[in-house]
Every structure is written in structure tokens, then in C-alpha cells.
């Protein structure tokens, strides 16, 4: 702490104290690991990606050169317009589904359960298993000759031609399932933070359970819903595993196209341009979302 010395005590300015260099540098020193990390793993790849999207590459040697070739953008937007829309629709549907599934569960854990940590752990345990294995497990479960469908077909509850794999439903379901922890945890944190005494106060002020839920719990959970939406929607929109394993030719998502262009076709400029478009779409979407919800509310709670 700096001591407060009244200036001009005897008409003479007291000697100014110099802060030691270490102290003024300490915020930067503490921030250094994060700054280096972001520079190496975020800024450099991002700049590389942006720059690649306007380069031209030799198809045989793969040597690329900055040519300010913007034509790739209208080209891929025209070609993959449908895929972009499909990705956003699937991600949105999956996020809504995950919210619908996660909200009652987290509400129950936060408000009613006695052993909160146990039930929260139970909710998360499946996700300790690898992402790809979980998705493959769903493939096995939903397969046309899998246990579920063959049982239903034997019972004549569904027609013989019925199938789930390779349909949008399978992909959306897979996305909703795989990103559930990203939905459930922010929701749980928001619900857990609601003061139980505020709930009592609402009952004291004639709110029935239902009114207390719609007028107190839900508004106070909005920041959690917002965070859950972002954390689920953003990765789901760029996902390529679910569509690749559970989907078919009609359910191709933009993540699959990028992966294909990058790893198989080695069309780096196109892959980069697709990624850039996805990035911009996400940023515009989030900005609109924040505007709609009011950034003040977000700052207050997040």
C-alpha cells in the first residue's frame, strides 16, 4: 500500500517515491504464459488461416503464394450455401434439444437433490469416455439391425423400412448428446447460484410455485441459458464427427467439408475460406444474440 502523504507539508514537495520495476511489471509477468499461449495457438493459426484463404497453391508441389485471390469466397459460399445453413440448423436444433433435456435435470440437482455432487458426477460420467467411441456406440445402438430398432420392428411398432441412421434426427441427436455437458454445467451453475431465500421471498409475496419459476427462477437462469447456448452451439456448428458417423450423404455438415478439403483434397485455400466464413457467421450470430439479450446482463452474470 502506498502511504498517503499530504503534499506541500512545509511548502516543499516531498520526495517522490519510485515504484520498483518488478511491481509495475508483475501483471504482465503473470499474464505472460497466457499471452504466449494465445499468440502461438490462437493468433498465429488464425492469421495463417486468414492468409491461406486468399493464397493460391500449386496443386502438385502444394507450395502456396499470397495472391490476394478473394474469388475463393464467392465460390465456396455459392457451392456450400446449403451445407452452411444445414450446419446452423442442426446445431441450433441440437442446442435446443440439449437445453430441454438438461434444464429439468440440473434444476432438480440444484434445487431438490440432497447429494448434488454425486448426481452431477453421474450426469458427467458418460463423457469421460472418448468422444469418438461414444458416437460409435450410438451408431451401434441406432443401427438398422441394432438392438433397439430390431426389437421395435419385431414388435411391429415401426415399419420394416424404418431407420434412424443417416437421417438428420440421428445427427442432431448425436450432437445434442455429445455436447450435453457444455449445456448442463453452465445451467447448473446459474441455477445453483439462485438464493433459496429469494425463492422464499417470492412465495411470501403470493407467488405460487409456477409463478416463482417463471418470474424468479427463469429470469435468474437467463445468463446460464445464454452461456449454455453459446458453449453448445458454437462447437456443434463446426462438428464433423457426428455427421460423419451417424449421418449420410444428405446430412453433410460444414465441418466435414472443411476436414475433407484440408486432409484429403489438400485444398488449403478452400478449407481456410470455409473456416473463415464459419468464424464470421459465428461472430455475427453471437453479436446479434448479445445485442438481443443486452450485453449489460451478460456482464453482470458471466
Amino acid at each position: 500500500m502506498e502511504q498517503h502523504v499530504p503534499a506541500d507539508l512545509h511548502g516543499v514537495e516531498p520526495p517522490r517515491r519510485h515504484r520498483r520495476l518488478g511491481r509495475s511489471a508483475s501483471p504482465y509477468l503473470l499474464g505472460a504464459p497466457a499471452i504466449v499461449w494465445l499468440a502461438v495457438f490462437f493468433v498465429i493459426p488464425l492469421v495463417t488461416m486468414l492468409s491461406l484463404s486468399i493464397q493460391t497453391c500449386d496443386s502438385i508441389t502444394l507450395a502456396c503464394k499470397l495472391t490476394w485471390h478473394f474469388a475463393e469466397f464467392p465460390n465456396i459460399i455459392g457451392r456450400y450455401n446449403d451445407t452452411f445453413v444445414r450446419s446452423l440448423v442442426y446445431a441450433g436444433a441440437a442446442t435446443v434439444a440439449a437445453l430441454v433435456v438438461a434444464f429439468p435435470v440440473t434444476y432438480w440437482i440444484a434445487f431438490r437433490a440432497k447429494r448434488k455432487n454425486f448426481f452431477l458426477l453421474m450426469l458427467l460420467v458418460p463423457f469421460f469416455v472418448s468422444f469418438v467411441i461414444r458416437t460409435t456406440a450410438w451408431y451401434t445402438l441406432l443401427a438398422d439391425q441394432g438392438t433397439i430398432l430390431s426389437t421395435l420392428k419385431n414388435l411391429h411398432l415401426v415399419p420394416e423400412s424404418f431407420h434412424v441412421l443417416a437421417t438428420p434426427l440421428a445427427v442432431i441427436g448425436g450432437l445434442a448428446y455429445n455436447y450435453l455437458p457444455f449445456t448442463a454445467l453452465p445451467l447448473y451453475v446459474a441455477l445453483e447460484r439462485i438464493d433459496r431465500r429469494v425463492m422464499e421471498a417470492s412465495h411470501d409475496l403470493y407467488a405460487t410455485r409456477r409463478v416463482a419459476f417463471t418470474h424468479v427462477v427463469l429470469p435468474l437462469a437467463v445468463p446460464g441459458i445464454f452461456a449454455a447456448f453459446l458453449l453448445t452451439f458454437v462447437p456443434a456448428a463446426g462438428d464433423y464427427v457426428n455427421a460423419a458417423i451417424l449421418g449420410g450423404t444428405n446430412t453433410v455438415m460444414i465441418g466435414q467439408v472443411i476436414q475433407n478439403k484440408f486432409l484429403e483434397a489438400a485444398d488449403y485455400p478452400a478449407a481456410s475460406a470455409l473456416s473463415t466464413v464459419l468464424l464470421v457467421l459465428m461472430l455475427v450470430g453471437i453479436a446479434a444474440y448479445a445485442k438481443f439479450l443486452g450485453s449489460r446482463t451478460i456482464e453482470e452474470y458471466v
Partner: peptide
């Protein structure tokens, strides 16, 4: 009767104002 059916109001120790 539940609290919301009673003609009684409470000032809570922690005030319990609605933050939103």
C-alpha cells in the same frame, strides 16, 4: 396453508430482494 395463501408478509434477515 402455503406461504402464498397467507395474509402475512416477511422481512427477511438477508433482505432476499430479487436481484433481476
Amino acid at each position: 396453508l402455503p406461504p402464498y395463501r397467507r395474509d402475512v408478509n416477511t422481512v427477511f434477515q438477508s433482505y432476499a430482494l430479487f436481484p433481476h
